[in-house]
Design a protein around this nucleic acid. Structure first.
Length: 471
RNA sequence: GGCGGGGUAGCCAAGUGGUAAGGCAGGGCUCUGCAAAAGCCCCAUCCGUCGGUUCAAUUCCGACCCUCGCCUCCA
């Protein structure tokens, strides 16, 4: 069996195929953060998904080039820049660094490219110029350049590839900006926004006057620049399906730079929304969490990552604080199994035990069914624990099991170092406690155990002597 | 109003035309000085409601109820 993924273009699960004739290289683009504030846990659901997709593709033998853009110019950013009096770069740099720090805290691999919109203005201008030349874009009296859906459809292109659109039935939302009054049609969208006084110093020159890029165009320009006019995989949150991704397709395919018969993107993946405590995350409900908020509550990035990866990516997921507490226990069970396997293997090297790897692969090949994969993993963990408890797991088999454990753990991005460094102070207390136990002074032993606990260490008495673990 | 997801145990969450994975929480037992970890056992006669198709439906069809998302710059 091979990997099958749901493709938003076809609205069905289909075999994952790549452009590379050798079937190895994958170009993958994921819409990244807008750096106007700290990213929240809902944003990170998408970025963790992208990282997981990349790791799984690599596990399956693909060579992935992962691109994630940084949107560093946009209405909200400009407003904050004006309010704070900082430069654009000062303002966005701060949140970009914070984002990358959070991204790392969730054990996401750094993407191969992290293009900033502001650094691709020439490419954006070129692309807009091309759309104007082809008659698919027009400059309105306000100086802004818009993409014409009507012209685009007029040349045989399809607008509405990712969803069923009914343009007549669409009602204009409340967020149509005052600077978009000059559009010919309500569905048209801005490619280049003419400079207005509120923009302050945030503007770039262009053949159409000073201004800044529209939102959708940056992803088209950067994606095609870094991955080519056609690439394999594009990810984002489900809210980006329309208009962002639909517009991205329109601009990119409207430019007519693809090889005839090739699409801009072969495969679109959209992650479902995250709910918190059963409700949409919102500041007024008090269920709005940035990653930092959760870390401040004492949860670890790894626990958060685990929780985000327990549900199927296309189902809306209910994120709860209780669930996060449960994640810690579940991970401890997974970790403990690996630790004991490693100990039992005693340095013996072996190829990964195929049973677990096979079930893990089978589950994830089926449109990344992570829940099913976890089911397989925990059934396997219990089996390994049983064998170890019964003393029926030879070192060679333990080594193979440990290799399999590492392989699946690494693919999920949840591998943890099994080497525990015990501080001298902690070790000293543990030694004192052992002495007390040997002297049958259990009262003193328990006092020492409490002291260790206060330092963040738990001691377990095993047949091989006491073992120290970090809480 | 248009379009698209969902409703499975106390909580989270897979799944299937033939009778419900897994995790957390909970209860009992074994082991232990006591714990911890681990193991064993228990924990949904039932999958929103009502109809229909079928030998058989939680799984297919229809209606209804509830809920979530998108509908122009929100992952």
């Amino acid at each position: 069996m091979s990997l099958e993924l749901f493709n938003t273009l076809s609205r069905r699960v289909e075999p994952f195929t790549v452009r590379d004739p050798a079937g190895r290289k994958v170009g993958m683009y994921c819409c990244g953060p807008t750096v106007h504030d700290h990213a929240h846990i809902g944003n990170f659901k998408t970025f963790v998904l992208a990282d997981f997709v990349r790791r799984y593709l690599e596990f399956r033998g693909y060579e992935v080039t992962h691109v994630m853009n940084i949107t560093d110019v946009e209405d909200k950013i400009i407003r904050r820049v004006r309010e704070t009096g900082q430069s654009l770069r000062e303002y966005t740099g701060r949140y970009e660094s914070a984002f990358l720090e959070d991204h790392r805290a969730l054990n996401c691999l750094p993407p191969h490219h992290l293009p900033r919109a502001t650094e691709y203005v020439p490419e954006i201008v070129t692309l807009i110029g091309r759309l104007l030349e082809r008659g698919l874009a027009y400059q309105a009296t306000d100086g802004s350049v818009y993409f014409s859906i009507e012209k685009y459809q007029g040349c045989g292109c399809r607008y509405g590839q990712l969803l069923n659109l009914n343009l007549e039935q669409m009602r204009p939302g409340g967020r149509v900006g005052a600077d978009e009054y000059d559009k010919e049609a309500v569905a048209d969208f801005a490619l280049w926004k003419a400079r207005v006084p509120e923009d302050g110093e945030v503007f770039w020159p262009s053949p159409w006057g000073e201004g800044r890029p529209g939102w959708h165009i940056e992803c088209s320009a950067m994606g095609m620049k870094l991955l080519g006019p056609s690439f394999d995989l594009h990810l984002g949150g489900e809210d980006l399906v329309f208009p962002h991704h639909e517009d991205e397709i329109a601009q990119s395919e409207g430019a007519g730079v693809q090889v005839p018969g090739e699409r801009f993107v072969r495969h679109w993946i959209h992650g479902a929304f995250l709910l918190v405590e059963g409700r949409k995350m919102s500041k007024s409900l008090g269920n709005f969490f940035t990653l930092r908020d959760l870390l401040a509550k004492g949860f670890g990035g790894r626990e958060i990552r685990y929780l985000l990866l327990t549900a199927h990516y296309r189902e809306s997921f209910n994120f709860t604080l209780d669930g996060l507490a449960g994640a810690r226990t579940a991970l401890a069970r997974f970790d403990e199994c690996g630790r004991r396997l490693e100990e039992l293997a005693g340095g013996v090297e072996a190829a990964a035990e195929p049973g677990l790897v096979g079930r893990f692969t089978e589950a994830l090949d089926d449109d990344l069914n992570a829940s099913a994969a976890w089911g397989a993993i925990f059934e396997w963990v219990r089996e390994q624990n049983r064998l170890m408890a019964e003393g029926r797991l030879p070192a060679v088999e333990a080594a193979a099991a440990f290799a399999a454990w590492r392989l699946v753990g690494g693919t999920l991005g949840l591998l943890v170092s099994t080497v525990v460094e015990v501080p001298a102070e902690v070790q000293a207390l543990a030694d004192q406690r052992l002495a007390a136990r040997k002297a049958k002074d259990f009262k003193q032993a328990d006092v020492l155990r409490d002291q260790l606990k206060a330092l963040g260490w738990v001691v377990e008495d095993t047949p091989k002597g006491p073992k120290l673990k970090r809480i």
